[in-house]
Nucleic acid binder design. Structure first.
Lengths: 134, 134
DNA sequence: ATAGCCACTTTCCTGTAGGTACCTACTATA
DNA sequence: TATAGTAGGTACCTACAGGAAAGTGGCTAT
C-alpha cells in the first residue's frame, strides 16, 4: 500500500535511503573490485592475464564486467587489430581516484575482520543455547 | 582445468585476487548500506521505523539482513518482552567505525558521479556509430 | 592436416536471492 | 465483534545473474 510516514519517522527521500547507494552499485557490484584491484596493482594487461589472475571468473562474465567498467569510464580498453588479436585493459584516472578508498577499506579490513569473526562465533554459540531467541 | 601461471602472470594467491574481497561481501552486500546508514544517521530505532525509512525493502529481507548484521557484530538488537513486543536496533561501535569509510565514499560520489554519467553517455553515443566495436 | 592462440560470443541451464501473501500471539481500542 | 498494531516466520514462486561448454576467425607452428 501507500507508505504513510508517521510523525516519528522523519521523511527521507522515498527512494534510496542513503546517499551512497548509487556508487555502491557501481563500484562494489560483483567482480568489479577484483578487476579494478588487479588493474591498479599490476598495471595495463590483457584479457587472458586478468582471466588467469582472477581464477574463478568465467570469460563471459569477465567480458561483461569489463564492458560495464569501460562504459562507466573506470577502465580503458585498447584494441590492436593484429593476428591473433590483442586487447589491453588499463585503469583510468577516474578508476585510479578510487585507490585511497580501497586503501581505507583494506586498513579497516586488517584492523577489524578478526572482531567480526569473533562476533560470529559468539553469536553462533549463543544461538545454540536453549531459549535462544524471543 | 588446472591454472598454470605463465611466466608473465605473477603468482597471486589463487583464490580472492584482492584483499578487500571479504570486507566488501560483509559491508556492501545488498541492503546493508541503507540499513547501516539509517541506523548511524537516525540512531536507535525499531523494526517498523527502519521498514518505513527503507521504503522498498520487504519485512522478510529486512529481518534477514538485520540478523546477518547482528551476527557480524555491526548491529545490536534489544528485545523488550512487552505486549505488543518491542525490539530496538542500534549500530555497534564496530559498525560506527565504518562511518569515515562511508563519508569518504559519499565525498567520492558527489565529486565523480557526474563524470560517470558523462562517460556513459559518451560510450553509448560511440556504440551507436557504424563500425562500433572490433 | 591439424592443432593452437586470443578475445571474445552464443546457447543452454541452474541456483538462489528476493518478492508475495498469509500466519502467529496478545492487547487495546472503536 | 472486529480491527489495528508489533515483530517477525513460513511456504511458494519467479527472475535473473552467473556457470559450463562449444563456436568463430585468421594466422602460425608442428
Amino acid at each position: 500500500m501507500a507508505v504513510l510516514p508517521t510523525a516519528k519517522t522523519t521523511a527521507v527521500h522515498p527512494e534510496n535511503a542513503c546517499p551512497i547507494g548509487p556508487v555502491v552499485d557501481l563500484v562494489f557490484s560483483r567482480w568489479t573490485t577484483p578487476i579494478l584491484w588487479a588493474l591498479n596493482e599490476y598495471g595495463r594487461q590483457r584479457f587472458v592475464e586478468l582471466e588467469r589472475r582472477i581464477t574463478t571468473i568465467t570469460p563471459k562474465v569477465l567480458t561483461q564486467r569489463l564492458r560495464q567498467l569501460e562504459r562507466d569510464g573506470l577502465v580503458l580498453r585498447t584494441y590492436f587489430p593484429e593476428v591473433p588479436p590483442r586487447v589491453e585493459y588499463e585503469i583510468s584516472d577516474l578508476g585510479r581516484s578510487l585507490a585511497p578508498l580501497f586503501a581505507t577499506l583494506a586498513e579497516w579490513s586488517t584492523a577489524n575482520l578478526g572482531r567480526i569473526e569473533q562476533a560470529r562465533t559468539r553469536y553462533d554459540a549463543q544461538q545454540r543455547l536453549p531459549g535462544g531467541r524471543p
